[in-house]
């Protein structure tokens, strides 16, 4: 079994993280924005798993589980909000989220 260099796994996590960031910064659809945030969270979770495998500890995986539950809670509230937003604005475009400003 060839061992996988940990830096490369960490780089993969970083890569996914920044791709998620691109998504957050460039998408207009709120659902897709939320999805991109999920990518970032998943990437952060991956970083924990990688670190856990480096130290051969379960802690990294435990942290991933917590991130998972957090993502679930976040998504449930987020989607409920998006439903309301659609109900009010008839759109899920972030453009309609611009009533509060200076």
């Amino acid at each position: 079994m060839n061992t996988i260099p940990v830096e490369q796994s960490l780089l993969l996590a970083a890569m996914l993280f920044v791709i998620g960031l691109i998504g957050v910064l460039s998408r207009r659809n709120v659902i897709l924005m939320l999805m991109s945030v999920e990518i970032m969270l998943n990437a952060a979770g991956m970083a924990f798993v990688v670190a856990g495998s480096r130290w051969v500890q379960p802690d990294g995986q435990v942290m991933f589980i917590f991130i998972l539950s957090m993502a679930a809670a976040e998504v449930s509230v987020g989607l409920a909000l998006i439903l309301q937003m659609f109900h009010i604005n008839k759109s899920i475009d972030t453009k309609t989220l611009g009533k509060l400003h200076d």
Binding site: S26, L100, H101, D102
Partner: peptide, 17 residues
Amino acid sequence: VKKTQNGNIRWYATGIA
């Protein structure tokens, strides 16, 4: 500076980034 608070969420996210 006021112009930065334009209410656009993408802009805010970019600011944080």
